[in-house]
């Protein structure tokens, strides 16, 4: 596989589009959530302003090198995830650095950000951050399990570890999508998806009412802005994977926007109306409901 330098600007363009869309999408989803609360919610451009504001703050306090690296790792996780899976199927410009075994790398990147974050937040010395980190890691691990199994099922199903190939296998008809060919694996993956979106009932990591927003408690100014950037990219990147693995990918930007939006909406749709589980409850939920379904999906294949 020869490397073309043009792919770098192309990937950066993808990144930019995803980043801008991520910020916008976040606001739109918030607005929709606000509707359930009978109000208008933030303006759709609010996230951009918040981001600029945070970058524009004059002071920062550091708690050491790791503290600084936390958000960087997190962002790396998001960017990396995005860069190594094809965003738009069949459009060379937005295929990024997708390669044959990218599914494995993607799985790794999903986890990588959390780990980096954990290290950084742990360094901040704030007990809430520490508690949040320990909760976060246990929950992410638990949530990852069904997802990993589901991915395994998918890989088994399509006999490939390349995301591009998996997407390719789903083309043709809507009914070729994994969601119809292996609904059990997709269900398990979607459960896991809920768990990783930091929304109720699985937002115990951030739980503002108990441990004021957990790991990011100490993050501020540019650090927070970095994390915000990641909050725009990472979920989209993750949804790109979901989209590619289970929902037939996207062949052009409008389809991409729509699918990502719907996936995002799904998390919000559940999140707005439920309170949060305690950490051991959510872990149990993933183990009791998520894993068996995922395993069943495995057998489905």
């Amino acid at each position: 596989m020869d490397f073309e330098w043009i792919r770098i600007p192309h990937a950066l363009l993808t990144l930019l589009i995803v980043f801008l869309y991520g910020l916008l999408l976040g606001a739109v989803i918030q607005k929709i959530g606000a509707r359930a609360g009978r109000r208008h919610g933030i303006p759709f451009y609010q996230n951009y302003i918040d981001l600029i504001k945070n970058y524009a703050l004059r002071t920062t306090i550091t708690h050491g090198f790791m503290f600084y690296l936390g958000p960087v790792f997190r962002l790396t996780g998001g960017v990396g995830l995005l860069l190594f899976v094809p965003t738009i199927y069949g459009v060379a410009m937005h295929e990024n650095f997708s390669f044959a075994g990218d599914l494995i790398l993607a799985l790794y990147f999903v986890f990588f950000g959390s780990l980096g974050m954990a290290l950084g937040a742990g360094e901040s010395g704030h007990p809430y951050a520490a508690i949040g980190v320990s909760r976060g890691l246990s929950q992410v691990t638990a949530a990852e399990l069904p997802f990993a199994i589901a991915v395994f099922a998918v890989a088994l199903q399509y006999q490939t570890l390349s995301v591009t190939d998996i997407v390719a296998a789903q083309q043709g008809s809507v009914f070729n999508w994994t969601v119809f060919t292996n609904p059990l694996a997709v269900t398990a993956a979607m459960m896991s998806f809920l768990g990783s979106m930091m929304r109720p009932p699985f937002d115990v990591v951030l739980a503002p009412q108990e441990i004021p927003i957990g790991p990011p408690t100490e993050y501020h100014s540019a650090y927070l802005a970095l994390m915000q950037s990641n909050r725009a990219i990472f979920p989209i990147a993750k949804m790109v994977i979901y989209m590619n693995l289970f929902f037939g990918g996207a062949a052009n930007w409008p389809v991409f926007f729509l699918k990502v939006f719907l996936l995002y909406l799904f998390a919000a749709f559940v999140g707005v109306v439920f309170p949060r589980f305690r950490v051991e409850q959510s872990v149990r939920w993933f183990l009791v409901w998520g894993v068996p379904v995922a395993v069943a999906g495995l057998f489905w294949v």
Binding site: A36, G37, R38, R39, P200, P201, D203, A207, Q209, V272, V273, F274, P275, R276
Partner: peptide
């Protein structure tokens, strides 16, 4: 009570 468990909408309605 609902807010303390992360269920925000109730607070929106009741405050209204």
């Amino acid at each position: 009570q609902s807010g303390s468990l992360g269920l925000g909408v109730i607070g929106q309605w009741t405050t209204y």
